[in-house]
């Protein structure tokens, strides 16, 4: 799990710049690349068992916006989804050990 989380955080760091750049770039391939990268991040949250509610619909809405040619909206939604995934993965990393402090006794 630690590897998954580490790679997710690296991916997230790599994503930050392309999202900012792609906002000025209405070409579909740039937007698609961002969406694919965020989807990959979401898949890692799923694997970690910590996907947050609503992230899927954010990505679905982002795809729909991209399909309708609204790149700015697509990237805005993708950014929200990216933050969700980062936080979910951070939660997963923290909980690897933190849960043991809550055992009832």
């Amino acid at each position: 799990m630690r590897d998954v989380v580490t790679s997710a955080l690296v991916l997230a760091a790599c994503l930050a710049l392309p999202v900012a750049r792609a906002a000025d770039d209405s070409r579909t391939p740039a937007v698609e690349g961002v969406l694919e990268a965020v989807e990959s991040l979401r898949a890692q949250a799923v694997t970690a068992g910590h996907e947050w509610l609503g992230t899927r619909s954010l990505l679905d809405e982002a795809r729909a916006a991209a399909a309708s040619g609204d790149a700015a909206r697509a990237l805005e939604l993708a950014e929200q989804a990216r933050r969700d995934c980062e936080l979910a993965l951070e939660q997963a990393r923290r909980e690897e050990e933190a849960w043991q402090g809550r055992v009832l006794r």
Partner: peptide, 12 residues
């Protein structure tokens, strides 16, 4: 015992 989700809560 694991916290999850936006509310960061566990069953416990």
């Amino acid at each position: 015992y694991t916290k999850r989700g936006r509310l960061d809560m566990a069953c416990v």
